[in-house]
Design a protein around this nucleic acid. Structure first.
Length: 592
RNA sequence: GCGCUCGUAGCUCAGCUGGAUAGAGCAUCGGACUUCGAAUCCGAGGGUCGGGAGUUCGAAUCUCUCCGAGCGCGCCA
């Protein structure tokens, strides 16, 4: 039998016990990786179910139901398990002793903010690259989903025991930053009093470059006007990029997003060694780079198509559909070439676990990047690319117009200012990352069940409301969370026997398992849905107390049951705060 | 034409990496406010999981094939 103290979380504990029984029954070498313990879909089947007998039947050379019977016989002796049933093709259904649930709640209270934290990641280093918006203007709403997703994914991975670095790749080397420089130069001349008229086609028209022009005018006076373009352009470009990055960092800060590393594309090719060239030569030495011709593209006709020999990466050797160019016709590197060097640089810094968050329009880029990682790390690193689908911005169901060309697109800042960062963050995560998302500005500030942000936060606030009122019966109830949890940890929680109360106990016991699964799958949205379910069961129990007064949390003449129920409320409040914390959403004590 | 992502209730979406009778919210209909916050809750109806075939004890989930939607398809990033 497994030592009870060795695995503190109920599902992990029971799984370990099932594993031990299987190993004893079949043999020590048996592969238990497919054995799971999960809550059954139908609560009448018991508290937990395991597929062990069905999964292991072949290896045990036994019929599933026969094997189930053997496993069940041993599980019946377990001190945590009240009864064992076999059902269907060989499910083993377990009903736990009531003390198991009381202990689970005590665990929640004892661990507090650490409850759910686990060591799945084993302190393994992970690099998550996200946002990486071009430094050519402020962030717009399109960037916002990837930003929030990446940030929540990082928090989740840290919570699951990984050693995570948040990275931003600054695309400051391509042609578009030269366009930025020319656009800023116009604003500079404007700042000096010149009449510049309409911004020409092909330059960035937005007003956000005016401060750049003013800063340049203040710093250089008219000096830049005397220079030829090749001299002023680097000066203006660097200034504009620096100011745009400051603006972007400010936009991200408004969403409580911060990165550990801002990695400059330009730094790969400037200042000493050209890492892009080195990477290309590294691959050439392996035979993965060659000079050759590509067939013309199949899709929409390319207007200035010209059949020429070019430097190609042999992506087809690593699962891509076509080999990919590394140099443009003017001899400069393609974005892809720099990006290979960027990822190689991460590997050289000790990361073999890479995650990139892309917008849906970059989906076609995934295969070649994964091919490049394979080549450049000899298969020693893995890259998981998470694609976030686009966000449709609505107001009362009507699309909000945005046109980037005119320069008056909807900025991320405008949205955050209007609805608040909590609403933005939660709604961006209340959907699977690869599903398109409708974001309605009117609905997310509504205070109703239709708005899941509010609904979950209200659950947390309502719990605190219960504490405030409970002090009439339990005046000594501590204010501070840890002290309150310690105080309530002494309560007679075995008195929690109502089905609604048991639902909540089960949900709380599920939290560590859900966190672990979400972390492994790189799916933070699961937390948002879990929190919604938890809040829903809490609201339901609360309202039942209206019809059935004996179910209220606070019972005036029974301090013992009141404390037991407050312990349950504390567990709910604690896990809501924990989950919201991972998502980066505030857990308020009251909604006023 | 090829690749990627997706297709689940009238609408918007979950479905815990293959489990038992597929679940929520909205909408529709019917209920609960001398309360620890009704900003909430309870109940009812509503499904060939896009169609078809396959893999196995078992498929919304994996494979193949059609249908439909979005994105992408040298020298943009």
């Amino acid at each position: 039998m497994v030592d009870k103290a060795s695995s503190p979380h109920l599902f992990a504990d029971v799984l370990a016990r099932v594993h031990a029984v299987c190993a004893a029954e079949i043999g020590a070498g048996v592969d238990l990786s497919r054995v799971v313990v999960e809550p059954p879909k139908d609560a009448s089947h018991g508290d937990m179910a395991t597929n062990a007998a069905m999964v292991l039947a072949k290896e045990a050379k036994a019929k599933p139901r026969d094997l189930a019977e053997r496993i069940a016989a041993k599980l019946r002796n377990d001190d945590l398990i009240a009864s064992v049933d076999i059902a269907g093709p060989g499910f083993i259904n377990l009903t736990l002793k009531p003390s198991a649930w009381s202990d689970a709640l005590r665990t929640v209270l004892r661990e507090g903010a650490a409850y759910g934290r686990n060591t799945t990641g084993a302190a393994e280093k992970v690099n998550v690259e996200y946002v990486s918006a071009n430094p050519t203007g402020p962030m717009h709403v399109g960037h916002c989903r990837g930003a929030v997703f990446g940030d929540a994914l990082v928090s989740l991975l840290i919570f699951a025991g990984y050693d995570v670095t948040r990275e931003y790749y600054i695309n400051d080397a391509g042609a578009q930053v030269d366009v930025l420089a020319r656009s800023a130069y116009l604003r500079y001349r404007e700042a000096l009093g010149e009449h510049i008229g309409e911004i020409p086609e092909g330059l960035y028209p937005g007003d956000y470059l005016k401060p750049v022009g003013q800063a340049l005018a203040g710093e250089y006076g008219a000096a830049l006007k005397q220079m030829p373009e090749e001299r002023w352009l680097p000066i203006v470009r660097d200034k504009a990029i620096a100011m745009m990055m400051d603006e972007i960092k400010g936009d991200l800060a408004a969403l409580n997003i911060r990165h550990d590393v801002f990695f400059s594309e330009r730094s790969l090719i400037e200042g000493g060694a050209d890492q892009v060239a080195a990477t290309i030569e590294f691959l050439r030495a392996k035979g993965d780079v060659y000079e050759g011709r590509l067939p013309p593209p199949k899709g929409a006709p390319v207007e200035d198509y010209e059949d020429r020999e070019q430097t190609l990466f042999r992506a087809t050797a690593y699962g891509d559909d076509v080999d990919r160019p590394l140099k443009k016709s003017d001899g400069s590197y393609t974005y892809f070439a720099s990006d290979i060097a960027n990822h190689k640089n991460k590997f050289d810094r000790g990361f073999s676990n890479l995650i990139d968050v892309f917008g849906a329009d970059h989906g076609g880029y995934i295969k070649r990047m994964q091919a490049a990682i394979k080549a450049v790390t000899s298969g020693k690193a893995t890259l998981d690319v998470k694609v976030v689908q686009l966000v449709r911005l609505l107001r009362n169901g009507q699309p909000v117009k945005m046109s980037k060309r005119s320069g008056d697109f909807v900025t991320l800042r405008e949205v955050v200012d209007e609805v608040g960062k909590d609403a933005v963050r939660f709604m961006m995560l209340y959907r699977k990352n690869d599903a398109v998302l409708d974001f309605d500005l009117a609905k997310v500030i509504e205070q109703s069940r239709e708005n899941p942000v509010f609904y979950v936060q209200y659950g947390h606030a309502r719990g605190h409301s219960v504490f405030r009122n409970a002090r009439e019966v339990i005046p000594e109830l501590p204010e501070e969370a840890d002290a309150r949890a310690a105080f309530l940890g002494q309560a007679a929680v075995e008195r929690l026997t109502d089905p609604g109360e048991l639902d909540l106990l089960r949900r709380l016991a599920l939290y560590p398992r859900m966190i672990e699964a979400a972390a492994v799958a790189h799916e933070p949205h699961r937390i948002a849905f879990y929190l919604y379910d938890l809040a829903s069961e809490f609201h339901a129990l609360w309202t039942r107390g209206r019809d059935l007064p004996y179910l209220r949390f606070i019972i005036n003449n029974d301090a013992e049951i009141t404390k037991a129920r407050l312990a349950l409320v504390q567990g709910v409040v604690s896990v809501l705060a924990s989950g919201l914390g991972v998502l980066g959403v505030h857990a308020p004590d009251e909604m006023r």
